[in-house]
Measured scan of single mutants.
Amino acid sequence: QWIQSKREDIVNQMTEACLNQSLDALLSRDLIMKEDYELVSTKPTRTSKVRQLLDTTDIQGEEFAKVIVQKLKDNKQMGLQ
């Protein structure tokens, strides 16, 4: 999976804004449970939030991952090649 192969780059480069947009999009599509949303959003640092989101992606699967990839594209953060 692309996200896993780029995990380190995503953790380093995903902005707080992109992270929040991803969470909002996942929530609005019922792809993330409120508990998982809280787990991510209550982490103390941006990098720990991104790591938690990516860990959740492993469990949730492809549809979940597609939303995150789309948000990275929207925010022009796909220089993660």
Rank of each mutant, 00 (worst) to 15 (best):
S28F: 03
K49S: 04
N12V: 07
K49W: 02
L31Y: 04
Q13T: 11
L54C: 06
K76D: 11
A65P: 05
F64G: 10
K76T: 12
R46H: 13
M33S: 15
R51N: 10
A25G: 06
E63T: 08
G79S: 13
K73N: 11
R29Q: 13
Q60C: 13
K66W: 02
D30Q: 13
K43H: 12
S5R: 12
K76R: 11
T45P: 04
R29L: 14
N12C: 13
V50Q: 04
K73W: 10
A65T: 01
W2E: 06
S41Y: 12
L72D: 01
D74S: 08
E8M: 09
D55N: 08
L19G: 05
I68W: 00
T45G: 08
L31Q: 03
D9H: 08
V67I: 15
L39W: 01
L23I: 00
T47W: 08
A25K: 02
F64Y: 06
K76P: 08
D74H: 14
K76F: 10
D55A: 14
F64E: 12
R29K: 14
E38C: 02
R51Y: 02
D30W: 00
Y37Q: 05
S22T: 15
T47R: 14
T15W: 00
S28R: 12
Q77H: 12
T56G: 06
K76V: 09
S22E: 03
N75H: 13
T47G: 11
I32L: 13
D58V: 14
Q1R: 07
E62R: 01
V40M: 01
E16I: 08
K73P: 03
L39G: 08
I68Q: 05
K73V: 11
R51G: 07
I68Y: 04
D36G: 05
L31D: 06
K43Y: 00
E16F: 05
A17K: 13
M33L: 14
R7M: 00
D36M: 02
Q13S: 14
L19P: 09
K34L: 12
G61A: 07
Q60T: 07
Q60Y: 14
Q21N: 08
A65I: 00
L53S: 03
I3F: 02
E38K: 10
N75W: 10
L19M: 09
D30P: 00
D9A: 09
N12D: 12
L54P: 05
I32Y: 00
V69K: 08
L27M: 15
D36W: 00
I68N: 06
M33Y: 06
L19N: 06
L72S: 04
I10G: 02
E8R: 08
T42F: 10
D24N: 03
S22C: 13
K43C: 10
Q70H: 08
D55Y: 06
T15G: 04
E63S: 08
K73H: 08
R51K: 13
T42E: 11
M33P: 13
E16S: 09
Q21I: 01
A25S: 10
T56F: 14
D55R: 11
I10D: 04
Q60A: 12
Q70P: 04
V11F: 02
S5E: 15
I59Y: 08
N12W: 01
A17D: 14
Q52T: 09
S22L: 13
I32A: 02
V67A: 03
K49M: 12
W2C: 04
Q70D: 10
D74F: 06
R7H: 03
E38H: 13
T45M: 12
Y37D: 06
R29Y: 08
L39Y: 07
E8C: 00
L19A: 06
D74C: 10
E35N: 05
L27S: 12
Q13A: 14
D9F: 06
L23Y: 01
I32E: 02
A17R: 12
A25P: 02
F64W: 07
K66E: 15
K34F: 11
V11I: 15
I10W: 00
T15N: 05
M78I: 08
C18V: 14
Y37G: 05
E16K: 05
K73T: 14
L26R: 07
Y37T: 08
L53M: 05
K66G: 11
C18N: 09
T15C: 01
K34I: 08
V11H: 03
K49L: 01
N12Y: 07
D30M: 01
D9P: 01
K71T: 15
E35Q: 10
P44Y: 11
I32M: 11
R29N: 13
Q52D: 05
S41N: 15
Q13I: 15
S28C: 09
K73M: 12
T15Q: 12
K34R: 12
L27Y: 13
L53A: 07
Q21V: 07
V69Q: 09
L23R: 02
D58G: 15
S48R: 06
K43W: 00
R29T: 06
R29W: 04
K66C: 08
Q70Y: 02
S5V: 07
E62G: 05
E62W: 00
N75C: 11
D58P: 15
Q4F: 11
I68L: 07
T57V: 14
L31F: 02
S48N: 01
Q52W: 13
N75A: 09
R46D: 10
T57F: 07
R7V: 04
T56N: 04
D55H: 03
R46Y: 01
K43D: 00
D36Q: 15
R51Q: 13
K73G: 12
S28M: 10
L27P: 08
D36R: 02
A65M: 00
Q13H: 06
Q1W: 13
A25V: 12
K71R: 04
G61P: 04
F64L: 09
N20K: 15
V50T: 05
E62Y: 00
L19C: 01
K6F: 15
D74V: 11
R46Q: 05
Q70G: 12
V50K: 00
Q52L: 04
Q70S: 11
V69C: 11
T57E: 12
D24C: 08
D24H: 04
T57D: 09
D58L: 13
R51S: 11
Q4C: 01
Q70L: 02
I10L: 09
D24V: 07
F64T: 12
K49F: 01
D24S: 11
A17W: 06
E35F: 02
L31A: 04
M33G: 15
L26P: 07
S41F: 12
D74N: 08
E63P: 07
N75F: 07
E35P: 09
S41W: 06
E8Q: 04
L31T: 02
D24A: 12
Q13P: 01
E38S: 07
N75V: 07
Q21A: 15
L54M: 03
R51C: 09
L54K: 07
T47Q: 12
S28Q: 14
A25L: 09
K49N: 02
R51M: 08
A17M: 10
T47M: 07
D58T: 13
R51F: 00
L72N: 13
V50S: 07
S5W: 03
M33K: 12
V50N: 02
S22W: 02
K71H: 15
A65Y: 02
S48I: 00
C18D: 01
K73L: 13
K49H: 03
D36L: 01
L53C: 07
I32D: 00
S41G: 09
D24R: 11
D9G: 05
S5Q: 12
D55T: 08
L31V: 04
M33A: 15
M33I: 13
V40R: 01
A25C: 13
D30I: 00
Q4G: 03
I32T: 04
W2S: 06
E62N: 01
L27T: 08
V40T: 00
T15K: 02
K76S: 14
D36E: 12
A65F: 00
A17G: 11
